[in-house]
Design a protein around this nucleic acid. Structure first.
Length: 604
RNA sequence: GCCCAUAUGGCUCAGGGGUAGAGCACUUCCUUGGUAAGGAAGAGGUCGUGAGUUCAAGUCUCACUAUGGGCUCCA
């Protein structure tokens, strides 16, 4: 056996570890490297090594499960002591000590009954075993430490040198909110030191892009402890960025046949009872009282749009009817889930409701998907789509569900857009497509959504007059492209690391006049740009030229333009490229042409 | 909501049972400078909030609030 073989692959691509492989003929060896399969074995064994170290440090600890996940591994366990970030170093140190003892990892098998007896005093192990159907269980042993495990594992601890424990967290036993909370430690492991370092560096880099950090640096938004958590304040720079995004989207909606509407922030609770929100979503809603009547602050915008639809009689000729609103909604999210702008309690959806016939669903969905795609392409986002199908608890006939679900799938297929299926993940009133974007730390966030709804039109008795002069009920499509401005801007910030494209940059041009006698021309240029809808600033503070250029450069502004004698005389500008630091001169007219072109890039 | 951690001027952080520090930012003055930090002076904090221990609490304890990492949920 080669020194570097840590396992085998069988014909079906299953990993067989060296402890389990009786006959290696016909098996493909797995070398000790950073391949997906090798890392799976290494990380799993590292989780065990961590468990062994924890057992030595905290003799009373009991272990639940320790699987390999996308970003490394974790182990859930119960322990009397409180374990904090500081303790991770101690555990890591113990792990290194254990490696030096050169333990082999050995495997033996037990019947389930024997295993039950062996772990009779360990209710967590009992819980694990109760979830395993097999009659024969395997135990892995390294030194004194034994753990129930199906493997696979590396042959010996010497393969586990390159790891890092990354965080300590709490996790519910079995993911059940009502169950006991265990301690979870996450870690990462690689086959060599360089890969580990590269991974840790990547995490560092991602942290630098964190929208909360950049948002503070660039003064985009803020929170205020006294005001309450999850309630963002938009500072001038952030509000400018947001206004530009709103403007781009306004035009895009109007071109696509959407009409703007706006509903009130609060509606009587009876209306929420009719909609079903009071019963189904009530615990997430904020309620208030006016003149002894209960009102609910809207968590969604649908109700308002329905009332507007119903205000005047509609004909089949009016369909599809598309209403949109930048709807401010409030939702009582649990305190522990709030996260920068990505998860807040007040946010603004780029919300729209399309009233249409069942036959029009597919066509409308195709248009929405096209809309989503053009927005994602505008910013260069990678995204994934997920079709969520009928859940167990659902209303409406199967045939209609089938039609709607197929309509969603067809729309994606026809646009050559790959999607995955979230079986049973739809809303109770209809199937949906969710659009997910990945943030700088690799976390996926739902942004856009397209939902088919048969429920609300029925509850609110929404009707139109059909061709045969009968009353029919339209279908409603709920859809959002960005999802919310808050979340989308958070992801944009991380995506561009704060260096936003020209058409949404909060400040688009900074003029740096060299001396006092250049300030007038700089201000004149600024005025010209502002008239074109381009945000410009003049840096004429009493600082050295170098200092002002440096300050301007640090603002992540698309254009920094220097204005001196030469520029005033020629009515030109000296542009600095923010990336290459190279400079070039343009006349004022040429500059304006370039800026207008840059603005045009924001058209969708 | 639950587990763990954190909370010092606008920002980033140091300090640590005897009553507050740095850098950046800010204000004023000098400097009028052609591509990433010119100089000087100054203002700004009851050390998240409320209790408790102590002769004495930013410093120790508890509660609350907020933030961070997760669990769960979601735009």
């Amino acid at each position: 056996m080669s020194e570097n073989i840590i396992g085998y692959l069988d014909k079906d691509n299953n990993i067989i570890d060296t402890q389990s492989a009786v006959d290696t003929a016909g098996l493909t060896p797995i070398e000790y490297d950073n391949s997906e399969k090798a890392l799976e074995i290494i990380r799993h064994s590292t989780a065990h090594l961590m468990a062994q170290a924890i057992t030595e440090l905290y003799p009373n600890s009991q272990f639940f499960v320790g699987p390999v996940v996308d970003e490394g591994f974790y182990y859930d366990f119960r322990v009397d002591e409180k374990i904090g970030e500081e303790d991770l170093k101690t555990i890591e140190k113990k792990m290194k000590e254990l490696i030096k003892k050169k333990y082999k990892i050995e495997k033996y098998e037990l019947s389930k009954d024997e295993a039950m007896k062996k772990f009779a005093n360990d209710d967590l192990k009992q819980a694990v075993m109760s979830r395993i159907p097999d009659e024969t269980l395997s135990i892995y042993k390294q030194g004194e430490f034994e753990d129930l495990c199906r493997g696979p594992h590396v042959p010996a601890l010497r393969f586990l040198n390159n790891f890092k424990l990354t965080r300590v967290a709490g996790a519910y036993l079995g993911g059940d909110e009502k169950a006991e909370m265990l301690t979870r430690i996450y870690g990462i492991a690689f086959a060599d030191k360089e890969s580990l370092k590269a991974h840790l560096d990547m995490l560092e880099e991602a942290k630098k892009r964190d929208h909360r950090k950049i948002g503070t640096e660039m003064e985009l938004f803020m929170f205020n402890e006294s005001a309450g958590s999850g309630l963002p304040f938009w500072m001038p720079q952030g509000a400018k960025l947001r206004a530009k995004l709103e403007e781009i989207l306004h035009k895009a909606h109007r071109i696509r046949g959407y009409q703007p509407v706006r509903g009130p922030e609060i509606l009587k609770s009876d209306m929420w009872r009719t909609s079903g929100h009071y019963a189904c979503y009530g615990e997430n809603m904020y309620l208030t009282e006016i003149d002894e009547q209960e009102y609910g602050i809207k968590p969604m915008n649908c109700i308002g749009h329905i009332q507007i639809f119903k205000q005047t009689q509609k004909s089949y000729r009016d369909l599809p009817l598309r209403f949109y609103e930048y709807g401010v909604v409030h939702r009582h999210e649990k305190s522990g889930v709030l996260h920068g702008l990505l998860r807040v309690r007040e946010f603004t959806q780029d919300d729209a409701h399309i009233f249409c016939t069942p036959e029009q669903i597919a066509g409308e969905v195709i248009e929405v998907v096209e809309f989503v795609d053009s927005v994602m392409q505008l910013f260069g986002f990678e995204y994934t789509m997920e079709v969520a199908t009928k859940p167990e608890k659902a209303i409406g006939e199967d045939a209609v569900w089938e039609l709607a679900t197929q309509g969603l799938k067809d729309a994606l297929t026809e646009n050559n857009l790959p999607y995955t299926i979230d079986e049973g993940g739809g809303a109770f009133y209809g199937p949906k497509i969710d659009v997910k974007i990945t943030d700088a730390l690799g976390r996926k966030w739902q942004c856009g959504t397209i939902q088919v709804d048969f429920n609300l039109p029925q509850r609110f008795e929404v009707e139109y007059v059909a061709e045969d002069n009968t009353r029919k009920q339209p279908v409603m499509l709920h859809r959002a492209i960005l999802g919310s401005f808050e979340r989308f801007i958070a992801i944009l910030t991380e995506h561009f690391a704060g260096e936003f494209p020209f058409f949404i940059a909060p400040t688009q041009v900074i003029f740096v006049p060299i001396a006092e006698n250049h300030v007038a021309y700089a201000n004149e240029l600024k005025k010209t740009l502002m008239a074109e809808g381009i945000d410009a600033e003049v840096y004429d503070k009493n600082d050295s030229l170098n200092k002002r250029i440096r300050t301007a450069e640090k603002q992540r502004v698309p254009y920094v333009a220097i204005i001196g004698d030469e520029e005033v005389a020629n009515r030109s500008v000296a542009i600095r490229n923010r990336r290459s630091r190279e400079q070039y001169n343009l006349t004022q007219d040429e500059f304006m042409v370039e800026l207008r072109q840059e603005l045009q890039k924001g058209k969708i």
